[in-house]
Design a protein around this nucleic acid. Structure first.
Lengths: 124, 124
DNA sequence: ATGGAGATGTAAGGTTTTCTTACATGGTTT
DNA sequence: AAACCATGTAAGAAAACCTTACATCTCCAT
């Protein structure tokens, strides 16, 4: 089984994802509502999350704590998905996040900076 | 976070473990009843399984399909947990499983009726 | 063949978890 | 102040899971 499949395999229930991310169910559903994640559904309509989803949620949380809003975060994600942009900028995810954070700090002069990063790579 | 914690962190619900192992809930609970696994419980008493639990379940399934019974499997597990034995034999899990399989096949080939459990004790 | 033991199926009744929907609330921005 | 954004909360319904208990099937020994 490839690493990619492992990352995207829907294994986790809502309650576990809440624990892993320290987000409320309300928050997680809200982010889904805005298409930042798209968890799988069981036959009974329960959400099932992948490790990748958890990573994204941690990233969202990080961005929000930096003062970004959902619309902006969505833009960042679509940018990152664009292969042209990715190649053009030639930035790793981590670097891109750092750059964006820097940009936001500059733009808004926010000074609550507790850098926390969700590294879930340990699980797969 | 250590690799050990990763393996033992209770992340998975019953339904997912059923899918991953292709075992029924009844079977999984039965193996727990016989102390082959000890899944964590949520506050609401739901079982939560670790990746390690899934590994063990797959191993149990494998052994059962080779014709072993629960009592025997439990013995193997407790043996493997014994650090003295583990060092002495110096076998990886995979190797041990292969050896046991081989042995069972041989036992079946020899004569089904006369094999007693104690006869194979030298192998673990 | 008969009976017992081991492993699993299944049903009932109850509890926990999750779902959607809708409204409320506390900060920001305009 | 009004609008907007992100989140909290409540209600009612449905899914998933729990324990308990009995049924079934296959081996194996008597």
């Amino acid at each position: 089984m490839s690493r990619e499949i492992r990352r995207t395999m829907p294994l986790l229930s809502m309650s576990i994802v809440m624990q892993l991310t320290e987000l409320s169910a309300r928050q997680i559903r809200y982010y889904e509502e805005h298409h930042l994640i798209e968890p799988h559904r069981t036959e009974g309509n329960r959400r099932m999350f992948s490790l990748n989803d958890v990573d994204i949620l941690l990233e969202i949380k990080d961005y929000l704590e930096q003062g970004m809003n959902i619309a902006k975060i969505k833009k960042i994600f679509t940018k990152k998905q664009d292969p042209a942009v990715a190649e053009e900028t030639n930035l790793s995810d981590t670097e891109l996040r750092r750059v964006m954070r820097e940009e936001m700090r500059q733009a808004q002069r926010m000074q609550k900076s507790s850098i926390r990063q969700g590294d879930l790579s340990r699980f797969y």
